[in-house]
Simulated assay, not measured.
Amino acid sequence: MAKNFLTPAETAQAFIGVGDYKTKMPVPKIIISSFLAGAYIAFAAQLMTTVTHDMAPLFGVGFSSFIGGCVFGIALVLVLVAGSDLFTGNTLLSMGWLNGNLTTGQVLNNWTLVYIGNFIGSLFLVWMMFTSDIWSGNGSQIGAHAVAIAYKKTHLTFSEAFVRGIGCNWLVCLAVVIVAAGQDTMGKIAGAWFPVMAFIASGFEHCVANMFIIPAGLVAMTDPTIANVVMENHPAWDLSSLNLYAFFVHNLIPVTLGNIVSGAVLVGGIYWYLYVKETQPVSQQTKKDDKTGFQAAKLGRK
């Protein structure tokens, strides 16, 4: 009876072929695919904001974070199962680079294009939320919550944001590995959902999610009604400190670096060392399974 998953060794071998495919995609396809991933992550972030905006006073911060993680789990399901290119998942291209299949230029070029595409997709969702006036819901409390999340994220220290970025993408890339190993749709969905729920509930930081969350807060607070609600809820805050400089320097840059470290080294590097380095294909069946994994991953475009 055929198994419905790949072993870790077979999955790692399959990623070598995936990296070759991703780096040879035409630039317009990379941009469009990564635009979709940015939008998918942003949909999940907006859902999380709406669902949790009034939960903490009723159920506590911990349970509210857990529910936020549960609903945010749709993000990687859309990215990995529906298909698109996400920067954090593409840090696993390090496996192909370590194996000598990819050059440094190929990896950096892909990362740059995907990062830009993710950012564009995220900002498109910011425009959608602003134009749709969703943030004015429940007496502008939804918008105020969007601002509050952004404010807290931009007031982390560099080291806090960096380490939270490491924790996040360690889990996200493990989700990518699990989805690639799965050979049926429900297995892939479960594999994508659980690690993402864990990183959100834990309070870790994802650079692409923050490409939506922090600009959303920046835009939402330009509405005087929303800004007033924020100050009523948090009278000691200085909203002027939530700005583009804080977005990039206090959050996006350190979080991105942390995401790269965990994805490229703690998952990609270690899996390459354990299962690819100095190994030979064990059998024709392994090759067949690798091909199956490659085709599944190609459709998923992690």
Rank of each mutant, 00 (worst) to 15 (best):
N99M: 10
K298P: 05
P57D: 03
L36D: 09
L113M: 14
A148G: 01
L123E: 00
V255S: 14
A146P: 05
F248D: 13
M129H: 07
G68L: 11
E10N: 07
D223Q: 08
A190N: 13
I214P: 00
V77C: 10
V276F: 03
E10W: 05
A42P: 03
F204I: 04
I142P: 02
V249Y: 15
I31L: 05
F194I: 12
V282C: 09
V126Y: 04
A45P: 00
G143A: 11
G203N: 02
L93N: 08
I166A: 03
D238A: 13
A198E: 08
A246H: 02
I16E: 03
N90W: 03
N243Q: 06
F247Q: 06
V179C: 14
K22G: 00
Y245R: 10
A227D: 09
Y151P: 07
K3D: 08
A161Y: 07
G300E: 09
L58T: 12
G217D: 01
K3Y: 15
S122D: 08
A14K: 04
K153M: 08
L80F: 15
K288N: 02
L78S: 13
A14N: 00
T52K: 09
M25K: 10
F124K: 14
H145T: 05
Y271D: 05
K24R: 01
L171W: 15
M55S: 10
K29Y: 03
G187E: 04
W193K: 03
G203M: 04
F194A: 01
V176F: 14
M197P: 01
K188V: 03
F66I: 15
V126P: 01
V261T: 11
V163R: 04
I16C: 01
A39V: 15
E205W: 06
N99G: 10
M1K: 15
V172R: 13
V176D: 13
M129E: 12
D238K: 02
I270N: 14
G100Q: 10
F194W: 13
W170D: 09
A180R: 09
A220H: 11
Q295P: 13
I166N: 02
V196C: 07
K152Q: 11
G62C: 04
L76G: 00
G143N: 08
D54C: 09
F5C: 08
F66H: 14
A227R: 12
W127H: 02
M55L: 15
S240I: 07
V71Y: 06
P224L: 05
K298D: 13
G105I: 01
A82S: 15
V177G: 07
S240K: 12
F158S: 00
L76K: 02
V61C: 07
S34K: 05
M221Y: 06
A82H: 09
W170C: 08
L266I: 06
A190I: 14
Q141V: 11
W135Q: 06
A264R: 07
F248R: 10
G191S: 03
K152V: 07
D133S: 01
L239D: 10
L171Q: 05
I30S: 08
C173P: 11
G117E: 15
L47D: 00
W111T: 06
N138L: 09
D223Y: 09
A56K: 12
N251T: 05
A75P: 15
A45S: 14
D184F: 15
F294N: 02
A42T: 06
K188I: 04
L78I: 14
L93F: 11
